[in-house]
Amino acid sequence: MNDSGQFYLDIILSASLPVKVVMLILILASVWSWLIIFSKGKVLADARKKAKKFEEHFWSGVDLNKLYQQLNSKKSNGIARIFTAGFSEFQRKKQSGQITVNSVESADRAMRVALGREIEDLESQLPTLATIGSTSPYIGLFGTVIGIMLSFHALSDVTQATIALVAPGISEALIATAMGLFAAIPAVIFYNRYSDKVERIYSQYDAFKDEFSAILHRQIGE
């Protein structure tokens, strides 16, 4: 470890107990946010990839009955889950001899429910990122206030105040502020980035739902 790293480590280890608690909270918050960032990034990337692959297969002219049987035999998610929900409801109405506009509307409702559940799954843990991003600076500021208070309180026991007496406390206080920003900034950046990705995926899913509903409408007229 270089001199600079050792210097900061010494300050952290020699910090007062309240400031250490604040630092520990911020470290845990930072680790938690990075775990969410990596896992959610993979989930969203897989969702986009699977949606693109499914739509390419869907619009290639595949038989919808065969496609439904393939997907229904295994647990599907994403855009495939929306398709199976709508097609299953439409087939149920068809088997009961109720092929009307209401049949398509019923299938559309089933797809909306499936769409809502898929987006809810994609949005999971994003509120945690938002919470970490919004609260970490204030937690760091709380540690800063405590550190400065303890530093000035130490001056009450001496007859001559010097910068050497308050410097360690102020240093640990400022590190607490920096750690709060270190935890908050990535959380805010990736929250905004992932929220935008979820919105794009929602638009893709919703467009497919509308297009598939139009296909079902055409089947009624045939």
Rank of each mutant, 00 (worst) to 15 (best):
A85I: 03
D196N: 13
L35F: 13
K50N: 15
S136P: 07
S203M: 11
K50T: 15
Y138H: 03
D196K: 14
L24K: 06
V31F: 09
V43A: 14
W59G: 05
N72E: 11
G169Q: 00
L181G: 01
L64A: 06
R92N: 13
I11S: 05
S96F: 13
M1P: 06
V166K: 01
K197F: 06
L165K: 09
P137E: 01
L9M: 10
F90W: 00
V31G: 08
F54D: 00
Y138G: 01
G61W: 13
A15N: 05
I175N: 02
E199V: 12
S106A: 15
F182Y: 14
A130W: 07
I37Y: 04
N192V: 07
V101T: 13
A187H: 03
I185W: 04
G169I: 02
I215T: 11
F87N: 00
E123I: 09
F90D: 00
L13V: 10
L71W: 00
I82S: 01
S14K: 11
G61N: 07
A164P: 07
G61P: 03
Q219W: 11
D10R: 13
V62R: 11
G116Q: 06
G169V: 03
D157Y: 12
F208W: 03
I132D: 03
N77H: 11
L155G: 01
D10H: 15
A214S: 14
I132M: 08
L115G: 08
T162D: 05
S16K: 05
S4W: 07
S14G: 10
E118K: 02
F83Y: 02
F190W: 09
L141I: 06
F83H: 04
D10C: 06
V166M: 00
I139V: 12
G5R: 12
S124Q: 13
K209R: 12
A207Y: 09
F152D: 02
S60H: 09
S4V: 15
G169D: 00
A85C: 06
L181I: 09
L115M: 13
Q125Y: 15
M111L: 02
S14H: 13
R200S: 15
A161M: 05
N102K: 10
V62T: 11
S195N: 12
P168K: 06
S60E: 12
D206P: 08
D210T: 15
Q70W: 05
F87R: 00
G140Q: 05
N192M: 04
G221L: 14
I170G: 08
G180I: 01
I201G: 04
A51P: 07
L64P: 08
D157G: 15
D196F: 07
A15Q: 02
F7N: 09
P137S: 01
A114P: 02
M23G: 04
Y138P: 04
Y191I: 05
Q95T: 12
Y138K: 02
A45G: 13
S136Y: 01
A130M: 05
V188R: 03
G97V: 09
H153M: 15
S203I: 12
L181C: 02
E222F: 06
K197C: 11
F182E: 06
D63N: 14
E89C: 10
G61I: 04
Q70T: 12
V101S: 12
S213E: 09
K209F: 07
P186L: 08
V145M: 03
G97R: 11
Y138S: 02
M23F: 04
L155E: 06
D157E: 14
F38D: 11
S4F: 15
V166W: 00
E199Y: 15
D108K: 14
D108M: 14
A15G: 05
A184D: 00
S88M: 04
